[in-house]
Design a protein around this nucleic acid. Structure first.
Lengths: 244, 244
DNA sequence: TTCGATTTGTTCGTATGTATT
DNA sequence: TAATACATACGAACAAATCGA
């Protein structure tokens, strides 16, 4: 008849809503599974099923003996590295993945949202945005130019000093300062001839082929929070993608 | 002391081994969960946990009321489409994903394994291989040149007629005829200037930037089974990648 | 160092619901 | 309709990891 959703799915949705609201800051554990089971009036196995889904979606991590946590994207060096390598896909042609060094080139705000960025971010054209430009280095050589577009409404008060002075990754900053946990991204890649400014920054001959990446980053609830354009020099590096 | 693995992991390994040997052909169900539980001498929940892992890895699919199956990569049109879109990442710039039309350009066998392909495939340089060349069309326009390298030892007797005359996808052919289920791939992308032959096939100006993709496909047990080089025209199309 | 409390991880068994044949 | 198979939900017991007294 009605086909109501399974109980574990209802609980999953309730937890996801709480997570989206930042109800559980990273570093402090969620209520224990028994506690949640009592709160939802269900068996512990049902809670576990709901949490399993959130763990699979990288929204939560479990630690035996300690509790269940929102992943800390910038906790220690190891956590920062995991985040880095999960979202940073440029590797040396021989397969080695190194941690890049980031050099900030520019930070401008507010800028009106360009027409072509409004749709993917769910914004009105002209909405106020921050724009940051970075140069990523591997082995002290520039390999990728990045242009980040961030809605001012989601990142209020962010400025050049706050952006450049962060500790850890950009997504760690999103989480710590604005309570935004990036869970997934969509990337579209194409080959194009390098524009003069890009070629100059990367030390490329004019119009040399570069890999252009357009990324949209999403937080819980598939809310788009960032649009990022990148141009990579793929003479000695490649974009690495593993599909499971 | 010893820290033996959990029971469900042992069962998972046993099932994965059986799957790698082709013990369960697509279309016929695995033994029911109760049967497996009895065979392994454990509770049904433990079997479910092991199967859960294989389902997550796309090695199995469950169908309520019917049973658990090895996915049929070329069963009906819908299954073929799912396989297609899981492994075919070229989409129109507006985001629309269409089914490509494949035109075979060449099939050569045996050819000695090139030096640079031997390592990724776990072969000795010079080992006999098949090489197929395809041209992929979207909306009746050529968008990607493909070069497939297949170890003869894994695909014995494959020839041009068998390759071109297949029904459905290439990976469906691998599975039906050779019992090889491709589960995951690794791809490395770079931008480069189109070689003359590539440019001619794609209708590009000489040395126009193209997206080069180098894919290694893996079956159960992380066994590499195919190396594929592709060159895509990204003037009107893009490589689409969703990271969860 | 030891011990106990807490929390997640594993395994068991059972009952009932839903989809398919 | 009946039988079969997976899906959901419950509850219990013990193991393993963690942390603080």
């Amino acid at each position: 008849m009605n086909a109501e959703p399974p109980l574990w799915r209802t609980i999953h949705a309730a937890l996801a809503r709480d997570l989206a609201e930042g109800a559980f800051p990273p570093g402090t554990p969620l209520p224990a599974e028994r506690t949640l089971a009592a709160r939802f009036g269900c068996a512990i196995g049902t809670v576990r099923r709901a949490v399993d889904e959130l763990v699979a979606a990288r929204a939560l991590v479990r630690r035996q003996g300690r509790g269940t946590f929102v992943p800390d994207l910038g906790g220690d060096a190891a956590a920062a590295d995991r985040t880095q390598f999960y979202f940073f896909h440029i590797a040396r042609a021989d397969g080695l993945r190194e941690t890049p060094r980031t050099e900030m080139l520019d930070f401008a705000s507010p800028l009106p949202c360009p027409e072509e960025h409004a749709g993917p971010l769910g914004l009105a054209p002209g909405a106020p945005m921050h724009r940051a430009q970075n140069l990523q280095h591997l082995q002290e050589r520039p390999v990728m130019v990045e242009e980040l577009w961030l809605p001012e409404s989601l990142f209020p008060g962010l400025d050049a000093a706050g952006f450049a002075g962060r500790e850890g990754t950009v997504y760690g900053l999103f989480q710590r300062r604005f309570g935004i946990s990036v869970l997934r991204t969509e990337e579209r890649l194409r080959a194009e001839a390098a524009a003069p400014d890009i070629a100059a920054l990367l030390g490329l001959p004019p119009a040399h082929p570069v890999l252009r990446i357009r990324r949209v980053a999403y937080a819980i609830g598939d809310r788009p929070v960032e649009l990022r354009l990148s141009w990579a020099d793929t003479r000695a590096h490649e974009y690495f993608n593993r599909l499971d």
